[in-house]
Each structure stands twice: as C-alpha cells, then as structure tokens.
Design a binder for these strands. Sequence first.
DNA 1: CTGGACCTTCCAGTACAGGGGAAGGTCAAG
DNA 2: CTTGACCTTCCCCTGTACTGGAAGGTCCAG
Lengths: 129, 129
Amino acid sequence: MRIGELAQRAGTTAKTLRFYEKQGLLPPAERTPSGYRAYEPDAVNRIDFVHRGQAAGLTLAQIRQILDIRDSGGSPCEHVRDLLHTRLTEIEQQIARLTALHDSIAVLRDAAAEPAPDTCDPGLVCRYI
Amino acid sequence: MRIGELAQRAGTTAKTLRFYEKQGLLPPAERTPSGYRAYEPDAVNRIDFVHRGQAAGLTLAQIRQILDIRDSGGSPCEHVRDLLHTRLTEIEQQIARLTALHDSIAVLRDAAAEPAPDTCDPGLVCRYI
DNA sequence: CTGGACCTTCCAGTACAGGGGAAGGTCAAG
DNA sequence: CTTGACCTTCCCCTGTACTGGAAGGTCCAG
C-alpha cells in the first residue's frame, strides 16, 4: 500500500503521514525500489491510535511517548493512566478559568447593554472595558 | 518618558511595547533627537486598555480594531458589544467541548484504573485508548 | 574617558499540528 | 509516447503573543 491509499483508509492526508513519520509517530516506512513508501495494512491501526489519542486530548508528543514505550517492548498502561489523570486536572483548570472569564465578560456585556455613547471618555478608549 | 520607564509603569517590558507599536496597538512614538522613543504620561492608559482587553479574552487584533475605531474619531461601543457577545458564545462552546472531552477522558481513566496489563493487544498499542 | 545602563534595529525562535507549493521522479493507461 | 495521477524532498507559511540575542548608538556618573 502506498502513502495515498493509507492516508485515505486512515482518514488523513499523505502530507500528514509524512509529518507523523518525521515526528517519530510512525516508524520509517519501507520503500519500493523507486523510493515510494510501502505500508502493511496494519499501519492503519497505528494511525487510528494516534487519532484516538488526539480525541483524548493528548498532544502528538504525548502519543509518541506511549508509542515509544510500546515499541521498546514495555507496557505503557501506567504512563497512560498518569497522562489521562494529568489531562483531566488540566481540563478542569481550563474549564474553571474559562468559567471565570465567561462570568467577567458577562458583567461587561451587561454594562454595555445600556447605551451611553456620549459619556465615553476618549482617554479611556472604551468605558465598557 | 522613555520606553523602559513606560514599560515599568504599565507593568510590561520595553520589548513588548515595541511589539505593540509594530502591531499598530500603539501609535508610532515621538522620537528624541537621538532616536529614542519619547512618551507622554497618558500612554499608560492606552497600555492599560490593552491589558483590560486581554483580561476580557480579546485578541490583540480585536483590541486593535477597537483602538482604530476610537483613533479615527468613532465610538466603538457597538463593536465592543458585538465582540463581547461573540466572545461569550465562543467561550460557552469551548466550555461545552472541554466538558465533553473531560467526561470521555474520565471514562477512559476509570477503565484504566483496573489493572490488566497482560490482556493488552500490542497491535492496538494500548487497550485504554 | 570609561563603564554600565539604557536605547536602537533586525533576525530568529518559541509551541502546536500540520498546509502550500515548487521541482522533479515514477507508473499505468490510452 | 504522452498524459495525468501519484510519489519524492525541500523549504516556507499559518496564528498568537511575545522573547532572546546580536551589533551598535546614547547618556550619565564617577
């Protein structure tokens, strides 16, 4: 299988697969005599794993760590648990920050709801912010 | 006032102020005969406005739009209202996405809590993801 | 007059996940 | 034999808000 077909089967682009290879997410592909990348059908699984990792909010660097552990014969379970735990707390913090930002913007918007363009002080640029 | 003092008064760095000027957030500064930027004391207000805009979750490009309207003699109130409204809905969507992501990661984490390293299929890389 | 603090411009890089496009090689069909 | 689809490497670009550093000019105190 060449890179275009693999990309289509895995739901991505050839460009992205070359990028993944350069990032170490995919092992250097076998080559045909003419230099084309040649893949086994199970290469799709690896790309699917990358996509599942992304869907779980992991960065490519984190996904690569998991793959490296697996590729060197280890069992990445514990590392995966740690990553998921860390991502959970990060997301919780991010939600908290966004919620606080949401509330403070809502206050500004409410203040901006009552029109008072004439009382604006140009030195302050905008009385609503 | 030179750029270093202004930066200190406004709670930022000289580097950042030059960057703001290049981005059009600050008007090109007056210059001393030797080429140093020279600022009036009220330049602090403009930088404060930039900071308040950032605190409201606006990008520098959006803050610049507001400043451009004000600088050309307009009253940016309505535009500000639109920006705040748009930011609010964006943040709400972002919170919804993060909450969904949080929940799906929590499911993965719970599955990963029960150790089963031997049943892992190396072809799948990790049964938890 | 010298040292150090400050200033100037310009170039380059950070993190993130690729995308765009050039210049050229390969392969199968018509 | 040519056309068109596919492939290769290469380098630069995207957006965000800066930050670092080099090379050189200015200013003030001692």
